[in-house]
């Protein structure tokens, strides 16, 4: 059974041979090709080649048609990206420094035609040509509500969001929402199979439930109404989301939730009640310090919480470069083993 079949069965409400495993190896690709991160991310071919190599080496169930989060800001006009030696690239200059910059912010009509998208498209094209139909190619977008921090800084965004002026906040969110919608369309046109809709600032780490309902949910709804839910995965992006899942599911119909390591897998599965997929996520920062036995134990815990009854994927979050390759292998081997379903196992009819 290949990765596409595995995830396909899951989406049909059936049990595959094992729990699919999503592994977010990104910057590791540069080391795989023996180049600096700046050189690595300069060409879509580099990213595609490394994604293919890493997927072959480790055997997990996804390929990333994605570079780094700050790429979204580049598509919206950010001209300075800072490349670290040992971590993800960052926005180096804010696009929005004054209210006038919000008014002046222009959202490209065709996000796919922007220069930063070209290499991404090349990457996705190569991945699809090499593994299309066998291994899902994932893309990622930053939700409108979480995009402003990359354009103006997190503190300025929270300030505008919480203290106004409301009209300016609304204008910015409308532009970010238009961008998000067009970005999703561009990624689909480029051929990705699934898209992680990343929304950390809307998470319960940042917002109370009433705030989420009032401030963030209308924009989430706007975006899902525009693009539909096909292939969309609601991705925590770094904050906890269990308490929001019911509302998001009810208001958007999205069919998959990618949890935070601090979320409650059992509770999330109870909330979706078999009507959406849930990805339970390992606390991968701990992979740096955990020994093999601790990794094995935590993978087993996650699988025991999520695998029964199907509808479940195992995932990672940030996968820092500092995790030794050996520990990645230990985690994945444990995930393949603990996530295996008995031969011919089926789910009871719902």
């Amino acid at each position: 059974m290949n990765s596409m079949e595995r995830i396909g069965l899951l989406m049909e409400g059936k049990l595959p041979d094992r729990v699919p495993v999503i592994c977010n190896l990104l910057e590791q690709g540069a080391a795989e090709l023996g180049m600096s991160l700046e050189e690595y991310y300069s060409r879509g071919e580099h990213v595609a080649e490394a994604q293919l190599r890493m997927q072959r080496k480790y055997g997990y169930d996804n390929l990333w048609g994605f570079f780094y989060v700050a790429r979204d800001a580049e598509m919206l006009g950010c001209r300075k990206i800072i490349f670290a030696k040992d971590g993800p690239p960052n926005v180096g200059a804010m696009t929005i420094r004054s209210p006038a910059d919000i008014e002046a912010l222009t959202v490209p009509e065709d996000v796919g035609a922007t220069e930063p998208f070209q290499e991404l498209r090349n990457c996705i094209r190569i991945l699809k040509a090499e593994q299309g139909g066998r291994c899902p190619v994932l893309g990622s977008v930053v939700a409108s509500f979480s995009l402003p921090p990359m354009l103006m800084g997190m503190d300025k965004w929270l300030q505008l969001l919480l203290t106004g002026p409301r009209s300016l906040c609304r204008e910015l969110l409308e532009k970010c929402s238009d961008f998000c919608i067009r970005h999703i369309r561009a990624l689909r046109q480029a051929g990705v199979d699934m898209i992680a809709y990343s929304n950390p600032v809307a998470s319960a780490t940042f917002l109370t439930l009433p705030q989420f309902r009032e401030l963030a949910l209308p924009w989430i709804r706007r975006e899902f109404e525009a693009v539909g839910t096909e292939g969309m995965v609601y991705f925590n992006g770094g904050g906890v989301i269990t308490s929001q899942i019911g509302l998001i599911r009810e208001q958007t119909g999205v069919g998959a939730f990618y949890l935070n390591p601090l979320d409650d897998i059992v509770e999330a599965k109870r909330i979706v009640d078999g009507k959406a997929l849930v990805a339970g996520v390992i606390n991968d920062i701990k992979l740096i310090s955990w020994d093999n036995a601790a990794i094995e134990k935590d993978v087993a815990r996650i699988m025991a919480a999520g695998a029964p009854g199907g509808g479940f994927l195992f995932g990672t979050l940030v996968m820092p470069l500092q995790i030794p390759e050996e520990k990645i292998k230990v985690m994945l081997e444990a995930a393949f083993r603990h996530g295996r379903y008995p031969n011919n196992a089926t789910l009871p009819a719902r």
Partner: peptide, 11 residues
């Protein structure tokens, strides 16, 4: 409590 509450409290 959430980060937005901490932010406003601090500010």
């Amino acid at each position: 409590t959430t980060l937005s509450q901490h932010f406003i409290a601090a500010q």
